[in-house]
Design a protein around this nucleic acid. Structure first.
Length: 471
RNA sequence: GCUCCCUUCGUCUAGCGGUUAGGACGCUGGCCUCUCACGUCGGUAACAGGGGUUCGAAUCCCCUAGGGAGCGCCA
């Protein structure tokens, strides 16, 4: 039997990191076993489902590279099928009509809570004849005794007494089917062999297995993955910052970094931390997934992101960086090759947003000096080194504007003045970059270019003079 | 309240009866060095508590504590 897994989000919001990880596990499991991964949109809640959410979910999956083999299927397009199944259950006496009014249900619930027992439907309509033409719902006739055993691929064996379960509604009074019915029908119809989903569904599993069996179907294997918590250990929510997968893209994270981070949240393969998608597929084993919830830690994600910015092909990173330059109002084609900038700066940024910010100086003059840097390095003592460097640089032909020659000029000035390299390079760096941090001074000068370099040195000399006059 | 589940450094985790309890992030000290970063070497820090079982428990069992999920005509 070939493996078939699915990701079945309800389109009531964006794709968040928890859902993304569930999708990832599902995807990896299918790929690992040469099976199929299907996407199903569970949009039976017409009140809350939106097309925007459907698009947002698909956008997130596409960005992460979680391609599906089948779908997306929409449950709203399968209402006839659900209806047919419900009628079948009704005919076979495995489901029944119920017209219990809300008030009765509310009262029942209240007394049960007061009696400290789990609130559940009491089966009042089980043996009653309910007029099909009057408003009613259809309930599934859950087995009264015995137990349902779930052999969870992650949790192990979990047993539920049928006595704990009640007769759940499978068709609403408006005729629409409910979740527990639709998943079961879809999973069966779509030949899903392994249901990998969030562990908020464990309690639904025995009900679903009972329905499945009533339908004469063998239940699939289940694997319930634990949830993802915020950094503070509380349930992940908006106040934890970005929870939407697409928001991470906007904040300058690489999809490979987020994927790598997510796969390590709850899953591990020995001591290995870095995984390409191919490695994940090759090494993934559902049995290696943890049972407990994990906290989302941005520091580690940052580390991975920096790792991928640093290790990735600069051309690839440059392509992803380009839009972030655009956000700063910079057109990367007007200046040094962005690929060279990435190669020079990659190790210095945790995100593409940061990378863009610290690289802006290559494309345009900065507005103001970093105060501390200017105070420390743009002092009267720097006038002589800067002046000499400027003279040396000015004499360079454009084709000599290369790291080796640039380095030589700076070195030469330091030697002439019998001072440390840093006494020349640092003022120069602040003059050209505006800050005290940048790649090696030779690379920095190369990226900035001759014209801008000379212009900025002049500006720095003026700044020093001004400052001296003010003192 | 009831049902089900979870519990190793601050965080992510390795461990599957015998280990100086390992790795990673973070933090931190040194080295490298024209700055920052990278890199590199080192340090910090954990088996929730209590009972068993066993020659021997982080590993198996029970209890307690803490945490979570579910208990909808939501999914």
């Amino acid at each position: 039997m070939t493996v078939r897994t699915r990701f079945a989000p309800s389109p009531t919001g964006y794709l968040h990191v928890g859902g993304a990880r569930t999708a990832l596990f599902s995807y990896l499991f299918a790929r690992k076993h040469g099976g199929a991964f299907v996407l199903r949109i569970e949009d039976t809640d017409l009140e809350r489902s939106t097309v925007e959410s459907v698009n947002a979910i698909m956008e997130g999956m596409t960005w992460l590279g979680l391609d599906y083999d089948e779908g997306p299927f929409f449950q709203t397009e399968r209402f006839e099928r659900y209806s047919q199944v419900i009628d079948e259950l009704l005919e076979k006496g495995l489901a029944y009509r119920c017209d219990c009014p809300r008030e009765r249900l509310d009262r029942l619930r209240d007394t049960q809570m007061a009696a400290k027992v789990k609130p559940r439907y009491d089966g009042h309509c089980r043996g009653r004849e309910v007029d099909p033409d009057k408003p009613h719902v259809i309930r599934f006739k859950n087995p009264v005794d015995g137990a349902v055993v779930v052999d969870d691929l992650i949790r192990g064996r979990i047993a539920f007494a049928n006595a704990e379960l009640d007769d759940l509604i499978i068709r609403r009074s408006d005729g629409s089917p409910t979740y527990n019915l639709t998943v079961v029908v879809d999973d069966a119809d779509m030949g899903i062999t392994h249901v990998i989903r969030g562990d908020d569904h464990v309690n639904n599993t025995p009900r679903q297995m009972n329905i499945l069996r009533a339908l004469g179907q063998e239940p699939p294997r289940y694997a319930h993955v634990p949830m993802i918590l915020g950094a503070d250990g509380a349930r992940l929510s908006k106040r934890h910052g970005a929870v939407s997968v697409v928001a991470y893209r906007e904040q300058g994270y690489l999809p490979e970094a987020l994927l790598n981070y997510l796969v390590r949240l709850g899953w591990s393969h020995g001591d290995q931390e870095v995984f390409s998608l191919e490695e994940m597929i090759a090494l993934f084993d559902i049995a290696d997934v943890n049972k407990s919830a994990a906290a989302f830690n941005t520091d580690k994600l940052d580390w991975l992101n920096q790792h991928y910015i640093q290790q990735g092909d600069p051309r690839h990173i440059a392509r992803l960086l380009s839009p972030h330059m655009g956000h700063l109002g910079i057109d990367p084609s007007q200046g040094p090759d962005l690929v060279d900038v990435v190669a020079a700066q990659g190790a210095r940024a945790k995100t593409l947003v940061e990378l863009a910010e610290i690289s802006a100086f290559c494309y345009r003059d900065f507005d103001a000096y970093d105060e501390a840097a200017a105070k420390k390095h743009l002092r009267p003592v720097a006038r002589e080194p800067l002046t000499r460097v400027r003279a040396g640089l000015e004499m360079l032909a454009l084709q000599d504007w290369q790291p080796e020659t640039l380095h030589h000029v700076v070195e030469q000035v330091a030697a002439e003045l019998d001072i440390n390299m840093g006494k020349v390079a640092q003022p120069l760096r602040v003059a050209v970059v505006g800050r005290a941090a940048s790649p090696g001074i030779d690379l920095t000068l190369q990226l900035v270019g001759k014209a801008a370099t000379l212009r900025r040195i002049d500006k720095a000399l003026a700044f020093i003079a001004e400052r001296e006059a003010a003192a």
